[in-house]
Design a protein around this nucleic acid. Sequence first.
DNA 1: GGCAGCGATGCAAATCGTTTGCATTTGGCC
DNA 2: GGCCAAATGCAAACGATTTGCATCGCTGCC
Lengths: 151, 151
Amino acid sequence: MPAVTQSLPRRLAEMPVLADRLRRHARKFTGARQAILAVLRHDSRPMSNKEIFARLPGGLCDLATIYRSLHLLEEVGMVKRFDLGDGVARFALLREDDDGHRHHLVCTRCAEVVEIEECCTPEVEKRISERSGFKAVTHRLEFFGICPTCQ
Amino acid sequence: MPAVTQSLPRRLAEMPVLADRLRRHARKFTGARQAILAVLRHDSRPMSNKEIFARLPGGLCDLATIYRSLHLLEEVGMVKRFDLGDGVARFALLREDDDGHRHHLVCTRCAEVVEIEECCTPEVEKRISERSGFKAVTHRLEFFGICPTCQ
DNA sequence: GGCAGCGATGCAAATCGTTTGCATTTGGCC
DNA sequence: GGCCAAATGCAAACGATTTGCATCGCTGCC
Ligand SMILES: [Mn+2]
Ligand SMILES: [Mn+2]
Ligand SMILES: [Zn+2]
Ligand SMILES: [Zn+2]
């Protein structure tokens, strides 16, 4: 049980609100999507397609549908994609006013994931942009280590 | 032509020295490995297996051999693996006294890669370790943006 | 509430990067 | 030169993700 400051539990949107966000984008609120959103709402830890699939009531939908749904949810800004360095995409629900920028600490033994509150690069990003001539500079930062349990 | 400060050209080991580093680990200095190291020595930008393969004199070795060779070179600390976020592993030669810790700025349009000199997290890493109880904390940090050419 | 139409889904096959089994070759060392 | 473990070629296997296509089911509209 890592002692890191977890970000405060953000109030998660109710299902009808999520349905609305989808319809606003001319997307359907299907059974599969409802179930996927329910899973993501239940646990804020970034989850892979397979993890989500495994938590769905048996055979509710095909794995391909999960992949397609998460793409769509990412497009409309309802989920954020994370790359924790193991070649598997993970997703977490986003509040409507959240850009999802955040970082994690991942145990390299058991893959436990802890959200990190720091973002060390507010001004660094600007400095890099100025020096390089690159525009729209963003960053991806993840920490790795061995969790207390695995030590 | 990005204006970013490229890291100073580090003196690269001569081929015989590289051969030696391999033999010291009881590994053979084969034709394939010699060619792969030559490619990496010629261009310090992190390169994928396929990129290296493409620069090798026609059919000098199989792609599988490149994969195996890079694993081995990584094991003995002669190359460093980078993950620039596109699902393809890239590798760069390491000097004997270099741990290879560095960061990059990647153009999301044309994939141009620029090495970044900053590492914003010397003390952050320690703070995170203390707060989380995780040991051996490291980090991976990459920047993304749109290069001058692609803007 | 019923309907048409477009978006969504299931299923299977395809992709892509990477790994691996196995028979064969080769570099390093005496 | 010869031995032998290490290295290689080739093709098949893999795991994550994507896609083609026929079918199905939300939604907006009447
Ligand atoms: Mn940040
Ligand atoms: Mn760093
Ligand atoms: Zn752990
Ligand atoms: Zn570019």
